[in-house]
Simulated scan of single mutants.
Amino acid sequence: MNDLKPILPDGIEMPHPLIIAGPCSAETEEQVMNTARELARNGIKIFRAGIWKPRTKPGGFEGIGVEGLEWLKRVKAETGMLTATEVATRQHVEAALNAGVDILWIGARTSANPFAMQEIADSLAAAKVDIPVLVKNPVNPDLELWIGALQRIYNAGIRRIGAIHRGFSSYGKHLYRNLPQWHIPIELRRRMPNLPIICDPSHIGGKRELVAPLSQQALDMGFDGLIIESHCDPDCAWSDKAQQVTPDVLNFILNTLVLRDSTVTTESLTLLRQQIDELDNELLEVLNKRMRVSREIGQYKKEHRMPVLQIGRHDHIMQTRAKLAEEMGMSGEFMKTVLAAIHEESVRQQIEVFNDRTK
């Protein structure tokens, strides 16, 4: 995928950051037009609105349907903004293309389904268009599935492709609606450096007060743009009202974002990066020594017919090390994640010792 084109159509300059904004759902013509006019007045160039809405359970508002496409036409005609909407089936693609929608995006539930992705790819190939298509990450943290979804769109002849990071679903209560797991889009950037990546802070946060800090964090990490849900009256929204902001609040957020210059490098930064490299090497050496000790422990357990897994010991390590990490100014959850990975590798090393018949 080295021959990707800019996301926006020819003749339209790609701004940094790219901003896409609009309501979660197109509800009424009045709501769509009021929101669009306010966003256009604040300089937004791309208007998003969900026409079809996949819901977790039946009975909820599942989108206004094709009627809303006429409202998007009116938005484009009256404000000059480009329009964007989500598609999940062949029929959605055909209807959106016939209505002149400028940008399509594919949601997290759809990108997780290879059959649905292939259906969309086939409909795009049949239409012989090179419309911009943005692919959200799958619901679960599966990078290969995300890359596979992007490749299906590429194989359909689409070259204006981008990714949307909207976070990953998880069980239980968390600060975020969908956990960011930033390392996954970072790895996607490493694997596909020419692919624009846009952050969706609305779906990651799930609360409007988290939109601003998540937007800043995404830009600090080099994301190419933001897709943010904005509604003229968010408290009365028919879907996801808690994560939508008014156009004026969105304008305030965008005006307070700090844009970093990724082209600036200094000698001091180079020296600091060299220190990081040296420390990483030291970490590897320490981890290697730890694994050698783990293998010796495994040998002892084997000789004395002890089980590999010692739950009490593991819990003690997790609790005490996490507390020490917090006292040193680090996140306890971060340390638990690190320790869990180290423990998994230690267990693997000990099982290898158990399975080695020569010892």
Rank of each mutant, 00 (worst) to 15 (best):
T89I: 09
C236E: 12
E344Q: 15
E285C: 07
D235W: 02
L195K: 06
D280E: 14
N2D: 12
I161K: 06
Q275E: 13
L226E: 04
R48F: 05
I131S: 05
S230P: 02
M335W: 00
I351R: 09
E267K: 13
A218Q: 03
I197S: 09
G172N: 06
Y176L: 10
L104P: 10
N251H: 15
A49L: 03
I51M: 06
T246W: 04
E27R: 07
R348Y: 07
E70G: 13
P17F: 01
T56S: 15
D130V: 08
S331M: 10
P6H: 03
Q350H: 04
A149I: 08
S230E: 00
A112D: 11
A108H: 08
L210Q: 12
L179H: 04
E327T: 06
Q243N: 11
S294Y: 01
R74S: 03
S239E: 04
A126W: 00
N113D: 15
P247V: 02
I342G: 05
Q217D: 04
L143P: 11
Q31K: 09
T35L: 05
P247S: 09
K336E: 12
H304T: 15
W146S: 06
L124N: 06
I227M: 15
L324N: 10
L257T: 09
E229P: 03
V286C: 07
A21L: 04
K301Y: 12
R348C: 11
Q31F: 00
T56H: 05
E285N: 11
G43W: 04
I297T: 10
I342V: 15
I351A: 10
S169E: 06
G298T: 02
E94G: 01
A49E: 01
N255T: 02
I158C: 13
A95R: 09
A49C: 13
A21H: 03
H343P: 00
R357H: 11
L175C: 00
N178I: 06
V245G: 08
L254G: 11
H165Q: 11
G50P: 02
V293R: 13
T265A: 11
D3Q: 10
G59F: 08
R159W: 08
P141T: 06
L188K: 02
N113E: 09
V211Q: 05
A340W: 04
R90Y: 08
I158E: 02
P138D: 01
V135G: 05
R321N: 10
L150E: 02
Q350Y: 03
V308W: 03
Q275L: 12
R191C: 10
D130W: 07
E327L: 15
I186C: 01
G332W: 02
I317Y: 12
G43M: 07
W238M: 14
H203K: 07
H16P: 00
C232I: 11
D315S: 13
R321L: 14
D315V: 11
L257M: 05
F223P: 10
Q243A: 14
E38Q: 14
L309K: 12
L324Q: 14
A127Q: 03
